[in-house]
């Protein structure tokens, strides 16, 4: 999306300081420590550290090709780093919400069946979890007939049915319009509140996502800046990466949602 000349050379000390302040005390669900990944001679990730704790929403933002998905996959143990270490809590149960699934659904699958994709789920339980994400009426629909927003709600319900400790959402608002995205993030915030699971969000639609997060990690192969949303939105690296426009529109949104999550609220207004 955006390329910033000389970006790689920036020192990371400032970013590290910002993170120390924002990390909660509890044991991390999943953590990567100074991980690097070199693929086909190209550095995909450069000494990145990140951790997700229980009851915490961590948002990973950055331009396309910044390594967001790779870093998330690494946290899940799907990619092995070239150097650095990755740790996960023992017997960690992960719920994964992909951006999309097989493109044209040549495979006939009802929502009900999709709910039991990786483990059996009773109809009652499926109904309950779909209800939690506002998709109970879709239980007998075919997956191929869902809109982008409906798919996200169904995929979220499926992940919730696993009672995950860690919920990972890859660009959940990609195929959803602006107000739909806002509602989706409200839903994600409510799920965190109710269930206390850790949530890792991957996103590049900045305006909406930041307000729902406790901590934002801005990635462009290395960590550019990191901290509570307000701090990140005002951070020069963030403004460099996404432009002043993004920083302003972020402030607008989070203002509406001050009351739902105090951690991000008051600081965010300043952004």
């Amino acid at each position: 999306m955006l390329t910033v000349p000389g970006f790689q050379d920036r020192p990371q000390e400032k970013a590290l300081e910002a993170r120390e302040a924002a990390i909660p005390e509890a044991e991390a669900l999943a953590a990567a420590s100074r991980v690097s990944l070199v693929l086909h001679g190209k550095t995909v990730l450069d000494r990145v550290s990140i951790a997700v704790h229980p009851s915490e929403i961590v948002t990973l933002i950055g331009p396309n090709g910044a390594g967001k998905t790779t870093l998330a996959r690494m946290l899940l143990g799907l990619v092995t780093p070239s150097s650095g270490t990755v740790g996960r809590r023992e017997a960690l149960r992960v719920g994964y919400v992909p951006q999309r699934c097989t493109s044209d659904w040549i495979i006939p699958l009802s929502v009900r069946r999709f709910m039991s994709l990786t483990q059996p789920v009773s109809r009652a339980r499926a109904h309950e979890c779909l209800g939690e994400t506002g998709a109970a009426h879709l239980i007998d629909a075919q997956m191929g007939e869902l809109s982008g927003g409906e798919f996200q709600r169904v995929a979220l319900a499926r992940a919730l049915a696993r009672e995950p400790h860690l919920l990972v959402l890859d660009e959940p608002a990609q195929a959803v319009d602006f107000s739909g995205a806002a509602r989706l993030y409200e839903l994600i915030a409510a799920i965190r509140q109710r269930r206390g699971c850790g949530i890792l969000l991957i996103s590049h639609d900045l305006q909406v996502v930041l307000g729902a997060s406790d901590r934002v990690v801005c990635l462009n192969r290395h960590i550019c800046c990191e901290g509570v949303p307000g701090a990140v939105a005002g951070h020069p690296e963030y403004v460099r990466l996404f432009g002043p426009e993004a920083a302003r529109s972020f402030g607008l949104y989070s203002h509406h949602h001050d009351h739902t999550h105090t951690l991000s609220g008051d600081v965010a207004c300043g952004g």
Partner: peptide, 19 residues
Amino acid sequence: WRPLLAMTVNEDLAAAEGV
């Protein structure tokens, strides 16, 4: 059947959830 179906629908999802 089940693991294969899961990874056919989405391989990352299946892998992340232990398939």
